[in-house]
Write a protein that binds this DNA or RNA. Structure first.
Length: 388
DNA sequence: TACGATT
């Protein structure tokens, strides 16, 4: 009976955590989409659209369609402006960098702007960092376009969707009313099943208005129930977000008890699976507490946990370290050590992670990882200077 | 093959 009870409580807790996370993501997505979000394409990751041609002809291309200024969407909630700069600075010299925060709470709104000195670096950043997985998020990197009134408030909230409806089908349903910028169907984080709720962002508000007129209270083809289509909530209602964010970052999460640890472990496993697919990692059985006992604060440096990465290729760069370690948790800094003259990687680098548990899992997962034709060796940094 | 500094 105890065991059953434990399992139930555990299930409830992990569900709650997952739901909370999802709620936060939804809010972040709403705000991102309501802001000066990326306007082109949205089907998948990778170096997708790289033009600005989506804004209306009247407003685009006039003074300057900046080829250096990027908007970065879907950043992890806890990512700071410094980390953003560090990440994108690994590509090239940055002219300016801005993480957009809530004016009242100071919380990140999950997006920011990075302006490079060189347009070439901006393009490179899109090609290499768009689609990068960081913790629970897949960041989106695209050219920032000048804001304009006509593209604002074009985000729709859709509910009552058939659980079987796919994102593609959702887009098909709405595309008759205008150009769809982003679409999303929310899924249960545990089961992956559609929650029957989604968002559609049109290019222009008028298109969104027409979609409401045409689709609200209507049954999609083959559906048995009508859907609800309305404008997504305006992010000016910040109270709920502040509450949720504070809840999410409660002491319970930072210093979890055994139960919460289990839930976090569960979440982390899922995240890892999402980030890297399957069997690239051996099954992990890391116990943050006991493994800590056997180690004399290796790699600990007040600012975080420093990790030594050995056997990097000569052409390795910082972005690969971000890509490898980012999915495991908060990464504050990465560094590839290069030869001063050749500028080639000397075969190793360092990664700083904020949280011990995440660093430990990253090490356990990435040590022995095959990168190209090399097998990496990953461990906490020691104090050893090349003695003998 | 192995543990950072041209800010």
């Amino acid at each position: 009976i105890l065991l059953v009870g434990f399992t139930i409580v555990q299930g409830l807790l992990s569900n709650k955590l997952a739901l909370m996370d999802e709620i936060l993501q939804v809010i972040a997505a709403m705000e991102t989409q309501l802001s000066n979000g990326p306007t082109c394409n949205n089907t998948s990751n990778g170096p997708s659209t790289i033009s600005n041609n989506c804004s209306s002809p009247v407003e685009s291309g006039s003074i300057e369609d900046s080829k250096t200024n990027l908007i970065v969407n879907y950043l992890p909630q806890n990512m700071t402006q410094e980390e953003l700069k560090s990440l994108f600075g690994s590509i090239g010299e940055i002219e300016s960098c801005k993480l957009v925060r809530d004016k009242i709470t100071g919380q990140s709104l999950g997006y920011g702007f990075v302006n490079y000195v060189d347009p070439k670096d901006a393009e490179k950043a899109i090609n290499t960092l768009n689609g990068l997985r960081l913790q629970t998020k897949t960041i989106k990197v695209s050219y920032a376009r000048p804001s304009s009134a006509s593209i604002r408030d074009a985000n729709l909230y859709v509910s009552g969707l058939p659980k079987t409806m796919t994102q593609k089908e959702l887009e098909q349903l709405f595309s008759q009313y205008g150009r769809i910028i982003t679409s999303r169907i929310l899924v249960d984080q545990v089961t992956g099943v559609s929650r029957g709720v989604g968002f559609i962002r049109f290019d222009r508000r008028v298109e969104a208005e027409e979609a409401i007129k045409g689709l609200n209270c209507q049954k999609p083809p083959g559906a048995t129930e009508p859907i609800t289509v309305k404008f997504a909530n305006n992010p000016s209602q910040k109270t709920s977000q502040a509450l949720l964010s504070q809840l999410y970052q409660s002491p319970n999460r930072r210093y979890p008890g055994p139960l919460a640890q289990q839930a976090q472990r569960f979440r982390l496993d899922n995240l890892l699976n999402m980030a890297y697919g399957v069997k690239r990692f051996s099954p992990m059985a890391i116990d943050g507490v006991t493994s800590l006992a056997g180690i004399n604060i290796p790699g600990h440096a007040g600012t975080g946990w420093c990790i030594f990465v050995y056997n990097l290729a000569p052409d390795a760069d910082e972005s690969i370290l971000w890509q490898m370690f980012g999915p495991f948790g908060a990464v504050t800094n990465v560094k590839v050590i290069r030869d001063f003259n050749t500028n080639k990687c000397k075969g190793f680098g360092f990664v700083t992670m904020t949280n011990y548990d995440e660093a430990a899992v990253a090490i356990a997962s990435l040590n022995g990882y095959r990168l190209g034709d090399r097998v990496l060796q990953v461990s906490f940094k020691t104090n050893k200077t090349h003695k003998a």
